[in-house]
């Protein structure tokens, strides 16, 4: 691909991802309302919100660092959108492929969270500071099981001889890890998938663990809009990475389609899968995780989920040795 094509494809993909993230947010809110036996907002509510927030004034706290305060959400949203350039969507290869794009995607995800937290810290308010600290605490405790999951998957792919670089998402999409695993390997993969799923609500900011409205408390107008968009993009990106790793089946090949038909069917199929994952992990998982105590949530992710992920690694190890 030439540079020009790449740029056009990137912009198109990012816009599309943004659109899908908003639609999924609307669906998420409708399903949540159904769980609560409410009617809920229309599916297009996130778009109304977008227009409304865009038209509103962005307030700047008097003690805030202006560039960091308003730059943080921009950077968070942009880095979350960039992740989609490294994710193979359906049968389409990622726009920017590389040997370690899995790690890069995770890195961008954390970068997006940190940018938002930095923006909140720049608001120079003790309330925002306390919530930002809590979020930082949670993300730090989530990073441990996430790195265990990532490295055990890569090790397993390398050990079982999947073609391609072990830290590339394309490797997992081209040949599902399930096909090379024995029974204990499948058990291990299921455990790893469950651990990954339980991480999504926390990293997608769906766990309301604070009393002050989260780190986006002091954002308003466009900064609030961007911080909410960043959260939605991150949620979508996380679910997409999950689909690429654990759920990579191709509908088009199953139907024996070629060329354009294959790409478009797989493209749609991919987003359907992402939607399913998001509904299970974020909508229903969020309904369960609720507003746990921050310390308990941190120890849940830092100890319990890490332990589960390590158990999964052990099973994969057994599978590779047998």
């Amino acid at each position: 691909m030439s540079w020009g094509t790449k740029i056009v494809a990137s912009v198109a993909l990012m816009l599309l991802a943004a659109l899908i993230a908003l639609i999924f947010e609307g669906a998420d809110r409708v399903i949540q309302a159904r769980i609560q036996r409410r009617l809920g907002p229309p599916l297009s509510q996130p778009f109304y919100d977008l227009v409304k927030l865009f038209a509103k004034e962005s307030l700047l706290p008097s003690d805030a660092l202006p560039w960091l305060f308003s730059g943080g959400p921009v950077f968070a949203a942009a880095s979350a959108l960039t992740i989609f350039l490294y994710i193979p969507i359906g049968s389409l290869p990622p726009v920017l492929a590389g040997g370690g794009d899995f790690l890069l995607a995770l890195f961008l995800m954390f970068l997006s969270s940190f940018a938002l937290i930095l923006g909140a810290l720049a608001g120079a308010s003790p309330y925002g500071e306390i919530d930002a600290k809590k979020e930082l605490d949670l993300i730090a405790s989530c990073s441990v099981p996430l790195s265990v999951i990532a490295s055990s998957l890569a090790w397993f792919a390398y050990r079982q001889g999947l073609p391609g670089a072990p830290f590339s998402l394309e490797t997992f999409v081209a040949k599902p890890v399930w096909s090379v695993a024995g029974w204990s390997g499948i058990m291990g993969l299921i455990i790893l998938a469950a651990a990954f799923l339980s991480l999504i609500p926390a990293l997608a900011d769906r766990v309301q663990r604070n009393i002050f409205g989260g780190s986006s408390r002091h954002f308003s107008g466009r900064t609030l809009l961007l911080s909410r968009l960043a959260r939605n993009f991150r949620t979508l990106a996380f679910c997409s990475v999950f689909v690429s790793l654990f759920f990579p089946g191709s509908m088009g090949r199953f139907l024996d389609l070629r060329e354009l038909a294959l790409f478009s069917v797989d493209f749609l199929f991919f987003w359907v899968k992402v939607f399913l994952v998001q509904t299970v992990a974020v909508t229903w998982g969020g309904a369960f995780l609720g507003r746990f105590k921050n310390s308990r949530l941190s120890s849940f992710y830092g100890v319990a989920v890490t332990g589960v992920a390590l158990a999964g690694l052990l099973l994969l190890f057994l599978d590779a040795r047998l």
Binding site: Q32, Q36, R37, R38, A287, G290, R291
Partner: peptide, 14 residues
């Protein structure tokens, strides 16, 4: 509601 479980809140309210 304060514990963050809106679904249970609605169940109780209903």
């Amino acid at each position: 509601h304060i514990a963050g479980h809106e679904a249970l809140m609605m169940a109780v309210l209903s």
